[in-house]
C-alpha cells in the first residue's frame, strides 16, 4: 500500500508534515475543495447510478418523477439476455487473453530495450507510436487494409510465403472477428504498458545485476530472479491500468462494428450505450436503468479484480 507519510519522511520533510498537522484550519481549507469536488463529480453520480439501476428510465436525464421503480428487474433482464452474457464473455476474453498477450509482449520488449541494445530510443518510439495515432485511423487501417480478404497485408504475406492458411484466413467473418479485434487492440496497447515496465526495470539498481553476474547468473536467470520479483509493484500497476481500460472497452468495439453492434465485438459498455441512446439506426426501446445496472455490475467486477490483484501482488515485502 502507498504510505504517504513514510514517503514524505524519506524525502526529508517529515517535520514539516508534523507542523502542518497541527494547523487544522489549514488542513480543512486545503481539503474542503477536494472533498466538495469529489462529492459532486464522483460521489453523487455513483449514488445516482446505483439508484437508477433499480428504476425504468427512458431518457438518461429524465427527472426523478418520471422514473418507474422496477426493483431488480433490470438485473434480472441483464442476466437473462443472451446478448449481455455475450458482451460479458467478450470483455472477459479481452481482459484475460488480451492481458496475457499485452503484458507478455510489453515485458519482453521492456526487458530487451533496457538490456543496453543500440537504437533503444528509436525502438521505444516505434513500439509506442500506435498510442499517438488516432484509434479511428488505426482501426480503419486494420479493418480496411491489414485484414482485407481482397488485398490485405496478411493475405499478401501469406501469398508471398506460400502459407495458404494465412492467405485464405477470413479475419473479419463472424467466426474470427474477435481475434481480429484482439490483435488490433493489443498492437496498440503494447507500447503503453511496455513504457511502464521499462521504467520499472530502469529503477532497479545495476548493483544487483553486477552481483548476480559475479555469482555466475546468466541473463535469463537475472531476469527470473531479480527483474521479475522487483517488478511486482509495476506489474500490479499495469494490470490495474489494463483492467480499467478493458472494463471501459468501447471505442474499438464501435470501430470494429460500425453502425450496428456485433456479437464478436460487443462489450458491456456498448450494451449500456445501446440501452441509453438506442441501437443502430432503428428506434429501439431505451432504458437508462439497464445502462446503470450494467455500470454497477462492471464496477463490481473491477473492484473484484483489484482485490484479487492486491492479494496476488503484495509488493510491500520487498524494498530496494
Amino acid at each position: 500500500m502507498f504510505d504517504g507519510a513514510a514517503l514524505l519522511h524519506l524525502i526529508g520533510i517529515g517535520k514539516g508534515v508534523t507542523r502542518l498537522k497541527k494547523n487544522k484550519t489549514m488542513i480543512v481549507v486545503f481539503v474542503t475543495p477536494a472533498v466538495v469536488m469529489f462529492s459532486i463529480i464522483f460521489l453523487y453520480p455513483i449514488i445516482r447510478t446505483v439508484l437508477m439501476s433499480f428504476f425504468k428510465i427512458e431518457g438518461v436525464t429524465d427527472a426523478m418523477s418520471k422514473w418507474e421503480f422496477s426493483g431488480l428487474a433490470n438485473y434480472i433482464k441483464l442476466f437473462s439476455t443472451e446478448l449481455f452474457r455475450i458482451s460479458m464473455w467478450n470483455i472477459f476474453r479481452i481482459w484475460f487473453f488480451g492481458g496475457i498477450i499485452v503484458m507478455g509482449l510489453a515485458l519482453l520488449f521492456a526487458a530487451i530495450l533496457t538490456s543496453g541494445i543500440r537504437f533503444k530510443n528509436a525502438f521505444r518510439a516505434i513500439i509506442y507510436m500506435p498510442n499517438v495515432v488516432s484509434a479511428v485511423a488505426l482501426a480503419t487501417m486494420w479493418l480496411q487494409y491489414v485484414f482485407s480478404p481482397k488485398f490485405g497485408l496478411f493475405k499478401s504475406i501469406g501469398k508471398a510465403l506460400h502459407w495458404e492458411w494465412l492467405e485464405k484466413f477470413q479475419w473479419l467473418d463472424p467466426s474470427h472477428l474477435f481475434i481480429a479485434l484482439l490483435v488490433a487492440y493489443c498492437f496498440g496497447m503494447v507500447g503503453y504498458h511496455m513504457l511502464i515496465f521499462a521504467s520499472g526495470i530502469e529503477r532497479i539498481g545495476t548493483e544487483y545485476y553486477e552481483a548476480a553476474t559475479l555469482d555466475g547468473a546468466n541473463r535469463i536467470q537475472q531476469f527470473r530472479y531479480i527483474t521479475l520479483p522487483l517488478l511486482k509493484g509495476v506489474t500490479k500497476t499495469n494490470i490495474t491500468m489494463w483492467s480499467i481500460s478493458s472494463a471501459g472497452f468501447f471505442l474499438w468495439s464501435q470501430l470494429f462494428s460500425m453502425v450496428v453492434s456485433n456479437t464478436q465485438t460487443i462489450t458491456p459498455v456498448v450494451y449500456m450505450y445501446q440501452n441509453i441512446f438506442g441501437a443502430g439506426n432503428s428506434m429501439t426501446e431505451r432504458n437508462a436503468g439497464i445502462g446503470a445496472a450494467v455500470g454497477v455490475l462492471l464496477s463490481i467486477c473491477v473492484v473484484l479484480i483489484f482485490i484479487v490483484c492486491d492479494k496476488i501482488f503484495k509488493d510491500n515485502d520487498i524494498e530496494f
Binding site: 446478448l83 456485433n262 464478436q264 460487443i266 441501437a279 443502430g280 432503428s282 429501439t284
Partner: peptide, 13 residues
C-alpha cells in the same frame, strides 16, 4: 432491427 438484444445475433447468423 426492432429488438436491439437480437440485432447482432440476427446479423451474425
Amino acid at each position: 432491427e426492432a429488438n436491439a438484444d437480437m440485432t447482432p445475433i440476427i446479423i451474425e447468423n
